Simulated assay, not measured.
Amino acid sequence: MSWNFSILLEKPVTPEQSDAFDHCDAFADGEISYTLAMEEGATPLPPASPDMFRELTCMVEAPSYLDAVAQALQRIRLIDGFRPVGVTLSTLVDLEEAAQRSGLDEEEMVRLSKDSRFPEPKTRTGTVFYAWDSILAFFQEIGAPVPDVPREVLIADLALRLADALDGADIPPGSLKALGLSLD
């Protein structure tokens, strides 16, 4: 099964990192990609979020979201200067990804999408995408509790944020242990 997510980096991808990424066999399968900021004097792109230059877009085959994130992180750490600090999910999903996030099989999601209360798609040509927050609202309306973010993605995101916060922090080992953090 393929899992879609983005790894947020501390800083935007540099041309040097881009070159190392492009020549690293660990990324040859295309499961992880990036967007490089434009060089000065280049024709500007349409306005975009500055975060897009700090994200590595991932579509990784693995048994679970957490396994997919872990596999991506192992490869990402091969590039000097890539410092992962979080995990994000797209706000737009197709029915397959909506099924994954909600814990349903794809057939059930397709059946639900035919309900008159199901949200209208955001796109209608090519792959059909829906706003994830609208699908969440639909699930609430029909009384099906679905988390905003799958638990495994939340765990991965919190772990990366905690590792980032602890980096360079002078915290006594006793305090870390009292917080339930392993010192091994």
Rank of each mutant, 00 (worst) to 15 (best):
78 L>W: 00
181 L>C: 04
3 W>M: 11
139 F>A: 04
104 L>W: 11
56 L>P: 05
64 S>H: 07
35 T>M: 14
92 L>I: 05
144 A>T: 12
178 A>M: 08
112 L>S: 02
121 P>H: 02
125 T>H: 10
133 D>N: 10
161 R>T: 05
169 A>W: 05
104 L>A: 05
161 R>N: 04
1 M>R: 11
35 T>G: 02
19 D>W: 11
117 R>V: 03
127 T>N: 01
81 G>Q: 03
141 E>W: 03
129 F>H: 12
123 T>D: 09
2 S>I: 07
117 R>H: 13
100 Q>T: 02
13 V>M: 12
42 A>T: 07
39 E>R: 13
54 R>H: 10
126 G>H: 03
172 P>W: 06
55 E>M: 15
134 S>Q: 15
10 E>K: 15
36 L>F: 11
88 T>W: 10
6 S>K: 12
125 T>M: 09
30 G>E: 09
33 S>T: 15
91 T>W: 08
69 V>A: 14
127 T>I: 10
149 V>W: 05
52 M>E: 10
164 D>L: 09
177 K>F: 08
52 M>I: 13
25 D>M: 05
94 D>H: 00
151 R>W: 07
121 P>E: 00
68 A>G: 08
138 F>W: 01
178 A>G: 08
101 R>L: 05
151 R>Q: 13
39 E>M: 10
108 E>S: 13
72 A>N: 01
56 L>Y: 08
104 L>V: 04
12 P>H: 10
98 A>K: 05
67 D>H: 11
60 V>N: 04
132 W>T: 01
178 A>C: 03
33 S>P: 01
184 D>G: 06
1 M>I: 10
128 V>N: 04
38 M>G: 13
32 I>L: 06
157 D>Y: 06
85 V>G: 11
129 F>Y: 15
32 I>Y: 00
41 G>V: 00
46 P>A: 04
138 F>A: 00
74 Q>T: 11
106 E>N: 13
54 R>I: 00
45 L>A: 11
72 A>T: 04
172 P>D: 12
95 L>V: 00
118 F>T: 09
97 E>Q: 08
59 M>F: 02
59 M>G: 06
90 S>A: 15
112 L>I: 05
18 S>K: 13
62 A>W: 01
126 G>I: 02
98 A>F: 00
73 L>D: 04
28 A>S: 13
16 E>V: 14
134 S>V: 00
60 V>S: 02
129 F>T: 09
69 V>E: 04
182 S>N: 08
56 L>M: 14
93 V>M: 04
170 D>F: 00
18 S>N: 12
151 R>A: 14
83 R>G: 01
48 A>F: 06
90 S>K: 06
94 D>A: 00
113 S>C: 04
168 G>M: 03
169 A>F: 02
53 F>E: 06
92 L>W: 11
15 P>K: 08
124 R>W: 07
38 M>Q: 15
107 E>V: 12
122 K>G: 05
123 T>M: 07
46 P>G: 02
34 Y>D: 01
114 K>A: 12
72 A>W: 02
73 L>T: 03
132 W>N: 07
41 G>C: 02
115 D>S: 08
23 H>Q: 11
60 V>T: 01
64 S>A: 12
11 K>S: 15
142 I>C: 06
174 G>N: 14
16 E>R: 12
127 T>A: 09
18 S>Q: 11
5 F>W: 10
29 D>T: 07
42 A>I: 00
74 Q>V: 08
46 P>W: 03
59 M>T: 08
78 L>I: 06
122 K>W: 10
48 A>M: 13
4 N>Q: 12
